[in-house]
Write a protein that binds this DNA or RNA. Structure first.
Length: 862
RNA sequence: GCCUGGGUGGCGGAACAGGUAGACGCAAGGGACUUAAAAUCCCUCGGGGUUUAUCCCUGUACGAGUUCGAUUCUCGUCCCAGGCACCA
C-alpha cells in the first residue's frame, strides 16, 4: 500500500470501476425490503453549489447506509429543468434556453459523478423533455375534466415599458429589474388548480406526518390556516341587499362600528355610485389596484381606506356602520369584507383612530376597566360581555357560541370555516415551461387538446425577445392550430406555460419507471417503490413544494392512479448553506472570484471598493456561491463530503467558511497512514472474534472503544442523522489506535487491529466511499465495501464497570470520584458526604437536603 | 408586518429525558524531529483572580421566573436566518 494518500487517483479508479460494474443499478425485487431515498432534484443552473453538495452528500450517506443494512435502495437523480433563469441566461448570452439547459445538465452531471454519489443514472429524468411533460399535460386534461383545473382572473406584476409579466423576484422595490420603471398590477385570465378542495384533508393529515420535522408540519398547518367562525349578513341601509362578512370573533359583534371591503370587492363601486364619495372611491380603487397585493406587500403599505358613502346596520346593536374600502382587506380571504371591531382588534383600532370612528368596548377584562377614549391599544383577550344586550355578563368565550346560535335561529348568519390557503395559480406568461394543453376557438371557446395529440411540444428553437416576454404568442407554427371540436382553422393554442412547481409535484413517481410510455408511471413500479421513505431537501421548500406535492398526490389518489395520499414518509429539511453577499456599486452582485481581496475588497472589473451585504442563502442570483470544483481539485470528493457533514448537523444552517476543510483532509490522511503502517501485518491475519474477557486490559479498552464507536455511529445515523458526531466518534477511535505501536505487536493485537481498521472503514464508507473502498480491497476483499454488511456492536462491550459520580454543593460542582458500577445510591451518598473536599465545603453548615441522581450525581443542599 | 426556526470559546460545533458547559475539529501560541521547509508528533488554549491548587469567582444573546440544580423548561426583550403564494 502506497504510503501517500492520493485522492484523485483513488477516486477516479473506483468511480470508473463502480460504473463498469453497474453497482448502483436497482430493480424491483419482491424478496427484498425496499427503501426509497430521494433528494430534491436540482435546477440545472450550470454548476453545483455547496447546498447541492451538502444535500446530496447527506442523501448518499443514508442511501449507502441503508444498502449496507440490507435494503433494496432506490436512489435516483434528475433535473428540474424548466424555469426562468434559462430565459434570463438566453437573453444575456444570446443563446436558446434549451441549449443552455442541456449544456448545464451535462456539466452538472459530470460534477455529481465526480462526487461519487450512488445514483442509478439509468433513471435520470429532465422535466423539459416532452417524454416527461406530456404526462403532466395528460394529467392537466384529466384535472380539467373534473373541474380541478379552471380559469379565473387574477393579478400579475406588469411592466408597461417591457410589456412583460414579472416574477416577484424581478420586482425590486416596486420597480422592474430590467428597466427600472414602476411595476403595476394587471388583471389577466389565468389557470388555477383547486387545491382549496383539499384544504381540510391536507390539514387533517398533517398530524399523521410523524416522520416530518415538527416545524415543517406547523408551517404547513399555519399556511393552510383554518379558522372557525361565522359568516354574518349586514343589511345595507336603504337597500334590500346585504354584505356578508367572515369573522372569527362573532362575540364582538355589538362592538362592530364599521365595515371594510377589499378594493376589488364587487360592491365597492356600486355602493359609492350615487354618493359624493364616488370620485374619491374610484380613485382609491384605481390606486390600490396598482399596488402589490401579496401578503408582504399588504403589510408594507400603510393601512388606509376611503368611505364609500354607504352604511350598513349592525343586526344586533342597530348601530349605523359606515362602509369603507380599505387596502388591508383581501378579496381572496373569507368574503372579502371585514366587520371592524376597533376595541378588540388592533388593525381596526388603528384604522378607527386614523379616521375618527367610534370605539365600543364589548368584552371587559376582569383586571381593569376599559375606557374607549383612554385606550392605547385594542384588547383581544378574554373577559365578560358588556354593551351586548341580552349577552351582558357572560364570558365572551361562551357568548360566542350563543351568539352564533342566535344568528342561525334568526337567519342572520351561520357557522363557517375559512381557510387562508388559496387556489394554486399555475399559469405563467413565459416561454421555458410546459405548455398548457388548451386551445382557444372563436366558436367553441376554450377547448382541451385531445389526448391523442399530446404532447403539445414546446418549440425549442425560439428566440427570446427583448424585455423578456414569451415568444410563444409570436410563433405562428405554435399558435395556429385546428379546433378539436369544430375543426376551425383559426383556433389558437394557449400560450401560458405551467408553473415549474407542477413538474416537481410528481417527479418522484416518474423515477420509479422513467422510461415508461403508457402513462405517467408504471403502476407495478410505483406500487413497489412508493411512497418515498426518506426525502431530503432544503428547508426553504418547507411549504410550497411539499404542499403542492401532497396535493398533487391526492389528485392522483382520487383518480385511482396511486394507492397512497402522502408521498413522503420521512422528511429531513437541511439548513441552508449561507454566505455573505458582495455588491459592486456599478457591477451589482459579484461572485467571490470577481473580488480582489486585500486590506479593502475591490471589484475585479472596476477596482471600486465593494459593499459587503447580509449573510444569505447561497443563490445564483445573489452570486454568493462557493464553487465545489475548487475543493474537488484540491482535496478530492471524500474530503469535500466529509467536511460538509462534519461542519454541522444537517438541519442547521451553515454559514460557509473555508476554515476546517484542511482538518478533514488531515483526518483521511491519518486513516490512510495508519492503514499503510499496519497493512503488512494485518493482511496476514484474521480479524479478532474472541471474547472480550480474554484480552489484556489495554487491548480490552481498544476493543470496547471499537464497539462503542460502532454503537455511537449507528445510532447517530439511524436516529437523528447527526453525522458530525458520528464522525467525531470515529476520530476518537482513530486517535486511540495511534496509541498502539506496530513494532512488537502481538498476534492478538494484530487481530484486534484488523477488527479496528475494518470497523473504521466500514463506518466511514457511506461518508467517504472511495478511500474506504481502497483500504477494503487492500485488506483482501474483492467485493465492493458497498456490498458489505454494516458492522454490529457487542452489547457487553458497552457496559461500563466504573462510573464517575459528580458531587455538588448547592448545585455547584465541588468534587468527583469513581465507583464500581454496582455501588448502590446509599453507598454513593455516604462516600460523597465523607469526601474530603465536600467536608470542607459543608463544615459548620446544616445539611438541609441531599439529592442523589442514580449513579451519576449527588447534590448537597446547605 | 405575519408564520417557522436559530443565538454556546478567536471559528465550526458537543452536551440525545433538567444533572461535570466547551467532546471532536479548525485557527493561534509553545516545543520535538529536520541543514531548512513541508509533513508528522507532543503541550497550552472561554474570561478574571492569587495563596499556583484535584483552588476561587464568572460565563451558553439580554432580563426575569420555576427548580436542590437551567445551554436545556416558562415569560419578556434584542439580533440573525428561512418562508410569505411568479426564484427554485
Amino acid at each position: 500500500m502506497d504510503e501517500h494518500y492520493k485522492p484523485e487517483a483513488v477516486e477516479t479508479r473506483w468511480q470508473t470501476h463502480w460504473m463498469s460494474e453497474e453497482l448502483y443499478k436497482v430493480q424491483e425485487d419482491a424478496s427484498q425490503a425496499k427503501y426509497y431515498l430521494l433528494e430534491m432534484f436540482p435546477y440545472p443552473s450550470g454548476k453545483i453549489h455547496m447546498g447541492h453538495v451538502r444535500n446530496y452528500t447527506i442523501g448518499d450517506v443514508v442511501a449507502r447506509y441503508k444498502h449496507m443494512r440490507g435494503y433494496n435502495v432506490l436512489h435516483p437523480m434528475g433535473w428540474d429543468a424548466f424555469g426562468m433563469p434559462a430565459e434570463n441566461a438566453a437573453i444575456a448570452n444570446k443563446t436558446h434556453p434549451a441549449r443552455w439547459t442541456y449544456d448545464n445538465i451535462d456539466a452538472m452531471r459530470r460534477q455529481l459523478k465526480r462526487m461519487g454519489f450512488s445514483y442509478d443514472w439509468d433513471r435520470e429524468i429532465a422535466t423539459c423533455r416532452p417524454e416527461y411533460y406530456r404526462w403532466e399535460q395528460w394529467l392537466f386534461l384529466k384535472m380539467y375534466e373534473r373541474g380541478m383545473a379552471y380559469r379565473k382572473e387574477s393579478y400579475v406584476n406588469w411592466c408597461e415599458t417591457c410589456q412583460t409579466v414579472l416574477a416577484n423576484e424581478q420586482v425590486e422595490a416596486g420597480m422592474c429589474w430590467r428597466c427600472g420603471k414602476p411595476v403595476r398590477q394587471k388583471k389577466l385570465a389565468q389557470w388555477f388548480f383547486k387545491i382549496t378542495d383539499y384544504a381540510e384533508d391536507l390539514l387533517i393529515h398533517c398530524d399523521q406526518l410523524s416522520g416530518w420535522p415538527d416545524k415543517v408540519v406547523t408551517m404547513q398547518k399555519n399556511w393552510i390556516g383554518k379558522s372557525v367562525g361565522a359568516e354574518i349578513d349586514f343589511p345595507i341601509e336603504n337597500s334590500f341587499r346585504h354584505i356578508s362578512v367572515f369573522t372569527t370573533r362573532p362575540d364582538t359583534i355589538f362592538g362592530a362600528t364599521f365595515i371594510c371591503l377589499a378594493p376589488e370587492h364587487p360592491m365597492v363601486l356600486e355602493l359609492s355610485t350615487n354618493t359624493s364619495q364616488k370620485a374619491e372611491v374610484s380613485a382609491f380603487v384605481d390606486r390600490i389596484s396598482l399596488q402589490d397585493r401579496s401578503a408582504k406587500g399588504i403589510e408594507s403599505y400603510e393601512k388606509e381606506g376611503v368611505f364609500t358613502g354607504a352604511y350598513c346596520v349592525n343586526p344586533m346593536s342597530g348601530y349605523r356602520m359606515p362602509i369603507y374600502t380599505a387596502n388591508f382587506a383581501l378579496m381572496g380571504y373569507g368574503t372579502g369584507a371585514v366587520m371592524s371591531v376597533p376595541a378588540h382588534d388592533q388593525r381596526d383600532f388603528d384604522f378607527a383612530r386614523k379616521y375618527g370612528l367610534d370605539i365600543i368596548v364589548v368584552v371587559q377584562p376582569e383586571s381593569s376597566l376599559l375606557e374607549p377614549s383612554a385606550m392605547t391599544e385594542a384588547y383581544s383577550g378574554e373577559g365578560l360581555m358588556v354593551n351586548s344586550g341580552a349577552f351582558n355578563g357572560q364570558r365572551n368565550t361562551e357568548a360566542l357560541q350563543l351568539i352564533v346560535d342566535y344568528f342561525e335561529a334568526h337567519s342572520l348568519g351561520k357557522r363557517t370555516v375559512s381557510f387562508r390557503l388559496r387556489d394554486w395559480g399555475i399559469s405563467r406568461q413565459r416561454y421555458w415551461g410546459a405548455p398548457i394543453p388548451m386551445i382557444h376557438c372563436d366558436a367553441c371557446g376554450i377547448v382541451p387538446v385531445s389526448e391523442s395529440d399530446l404532447p403539445v411540444v414546446l418549440p425549442e428553437n425560439a428566440d427570446l425577445l427583448d424585455g423578456g416576454h414569451s415568444p410563444l404568442p409570436t410563433l405562428p407554427g405554435f399558435m395556429r392550430t385546428t379546433c378539436p371540436q369544430c375543426g376551425s382553422k383559426t383556433a389558437r393554442r394557449e400560450t401560458d406555460t405551467m408553473d415549474t412547481f407542477v413538474e416537481s409535484s410528481w417527479y418522484f413517481q416518474r423515477y420509479c419507471s422513467p422510461h415508461y410510455h403508457e402513462g405517467m408511471f408504471d403502476p407495478k413500479a410505483v406500487n413497489y417503490w412508493m411512497p418515498v421513505d426518506q426525502y431530503i431537501g432544503g428547508v426553504e421548500h418547507a411549504i410550497l413544494h411539499l404542499l403542492y406535492s401532497r396535493y398533487y398526490t391526492r389528485v392522483l389518489y382520487d383518480m385511482g392512479l396511486v394507492s397512497y395520499k402522502e408521498p413522503f414518509t420521512r422528511l429531513l429539511t437541511q439548513g441552508m448553506v449561507c454566505k455573505e453577499t458582495v455588491q459592486c456599486p456599478t457591477h451589482g452582485f459579484l461572485f467571490p472570484e470577481e473580488v480582489l481581496s486585500g486590506k479593502e475588497r475591490l471589484c475585479k472589473i472596476c477596482h471600486q471598493p465593494v459593499n459587503i451585504g447580509r449573510v444569505e442563502k447561497m443563490s445564483k442570483s445573489k452570486k454568493n456561491v462557493v464553487d465545489p470544483n475548487v475543493l474537488l481539485e484540491k482535496y478530492g470528493a471524500d474530503t469535500t463530503r466529509l467536511f460538509c457533514l462534519f461542519a454541522s448537523p444537517p438541519e442547521r444552517s451553515l454559514e460557509w467558511s473555508e476554515q476546517g476543510v484542511d482538518g478533514s483532509f488531515r483526518f483521511l490522511n491519518r486513516i490512510w497512514r495508519l492503514s499503510a503502517i499496519w497493512m503488512p501485518c494485518v493482511q496476514q491475519s484474521p480479524a479478532f472474534d474472541g471474547s472480550m474477557d480474554s484480552l489484556a486490559p489495554d487491548l480490552r479498552e481498544l476493543y470496547k472503544k471499537i464497539h462503542q464507536t460502532i454503537f455511537k455511529v449507528t445510532s447517530d445515523i439511524e436516529d437523528r442523522f447527526h453525522f458530525n458526531t458520528a464522525i467525531s466518534a470515529v476520530m476518537e477511535l482513530v486517535n486511540m489506535m495511534y496509541g498502539f505501536s506496530v513494532e512488537n505487536a502481538t498476534p492478538e493485537l494484530i487481530r484486534l487491529f484488523r477488527l479496528a481498521i475494518e470497523s473504521v472503514v466500514l463506518l466511514l464508507s457511506p461518508v467517504t466511499p472511495h478511500i474506504t473502498e481502497e483500504i477494503w480491497h487492500e485488506l483482501g476483499y474483492s467485493n465492493s465495501i458497498f456490498m458489505a454488511s454494516w458492522p454490529k456492536y457487542c452489547p457487553d462491550a458497552l457496559v461500563k464497570d466504573m462510573l464517575l459520580v459528580v458531587v455538588q454543593v448547592n448545585g455547584k460542582l465541588r468534587s468527583k470520584f469513581t465507583v464500581a458500577a454496582d455501588t448502590d445510591d446509599d453507598a454513593i451518598k455516604q462516600q460523597a458526604l465523607a469526601d474530603e473536599r465536600i467536608l470542607k465545603c459543608i463544615a459548620g453548615k446544616i445539611v438541609r437536603k441531599i439529592v442523589v441522581v442514580q449513579k451519576k450525581l449527588v447534590n448537597i443542599v446547605i
